[in-house]
């Protein structure tokens, strides 16, 4: 079942179109990557989902219902431009933001205690935001985004500004939230940063959706049946079933990219190689989302 169904959404501004008839589904309980270069229309789409702005045409369905204001409290949104009230204490700020999301004061206080214990930041609660380091502020902001336990969490460029340790901490939290049943949307232009985390993706370029679906399927579709082989010996492929795309020899050690041609299986290639050389490594060259994106964009332009 899909938690969010985006159906033909179009958004125009005075002199450009931000979204042009974009449709895709976001399945419940997955980590969804909303990917595309800067200015592709990701933030416009997120602002429509979070009801900051409205679409010119098209509909969005949240859990099967047309989007309406009461859905907002079931969403958490971390904007790309992070910000908090600088002169407000961490505890008060979290309480305020949680209450605005519809929690009662008691619920909010209980949640804050829980999160503070998890992030081990009890001593910050009475500090002003402006006295915290940037990384700490980001943690507070992340807490504020997810504290009301929304079923849809939207994170715009989630890892920018985090050091590697905190980025890992946040990653673990995101996975935990997903395991608890939340759906997470990552929006980023740095596709490689979220590739490993995402179950599903949608690629957007120049206000149009280019491609969407489960990562596994997309990769299967776009895989090139190419394998990287490293080994000892003198490699010379003569079989018509295989095509060598690239080969380097260095003091008897070779490294080669080999593509399977019609009907050949990886095992056929392996068998063929074993008879001739000593194989140390045999890896499928899977295209990265970035590669797929570039290929797909090229296709759309040439078509």
């Amino acid at each position: 079942m899909s938690i969010l169904k985006i159906d033909g959404v179009t958004k125009r501004y005075a002199n450009h179109t931000a979204l042009d008839n974009v449709s895709f589904d976001i399945p419940q309980g997955c980590i969804f990557g909303l990917l595309g270069p800067n200015g592709a229309g990701k933030t416009s789409l997120i602002r429509i989902i979070t009801q900051i702005t409205g679409a010119d045409s098209g509909e969005i369905y949240f859990k099967g219902e047309k989007l309406r204001p009461s859905h907002i409290k079931d969403m958490g949104y971390l904007p790309e431009e992070r910000g908090l009230y600088k002169k407000m204490k961490v505890g008060e700020q979290l309480l305020y933001l949680a209450q605005l999301k519809g929690l009662t004061k008691d619920e909010a206080i209980a949640r804050i205690k829980e999160w503070v214990a998890r992030f081990e930041i009890k001593e910050w609660l009475n500090k002003n935001i402006e006295d915290l380091s940037k990384g700490m502020q980001q943690k507070v902001q992340f807490m504020a985004t997810v504290m009301h336990e929304p079923s849809l969490i939207i994170l715009d460029e989630p890892f920018s500004g985090f050091d590697p340790i905190n980025a890992n901490l946040i990653k673990d939290e995101i996975l935990r939230l997903r395991d608890n049943g939340a759906t997470i949307i990552f929006s980023t232009h740095r596709m490689e940063s979220v590739e490993e985390l995402c179950d599903n993706i949608a690629l957007i370029n120049r206000s149009r959706k280019v491609l969407d679906g489960p990562v596994r399927e997309i990769k299967d579709t776009y895989k090139t049946d190419t394998y990287q082989v490293i080994g000892n010996g003198h490699l010379l492929i003569t079989s018509p079933d295989f095509e060598v795309l690239e080969q380097h020899d260095n003091h008897g050690v070779f490294r080669a990219s080999i593509r399977l041609l019609d009907g050949a299986s990886p095992n056929d290639l392996l068998r063929y190689l074993i008879q001739r050389v000593e194989v140390h490594s045999f890896v499928e060259l899977v295209p990265s989302i970035n590669d797929i994106f570039i290929r797909k964009v090229k296709e759309t332009y040439h078509a």
Binding site: Q51, I52, I72, Y77, R82, G83, L84, K86, L100, A144
Partner: peptide, 16 residues
């Protein structure tokens, strides 16, 4: 202040 602190987008994802 809300604008320069960039809190405003967080706020209006919760309130009108």
């Amino acid at each position: 202040e809300e604008k320069t602190n960039r809190i405003v987008e967080v706020m209006i994802s919760s309130v009108k």
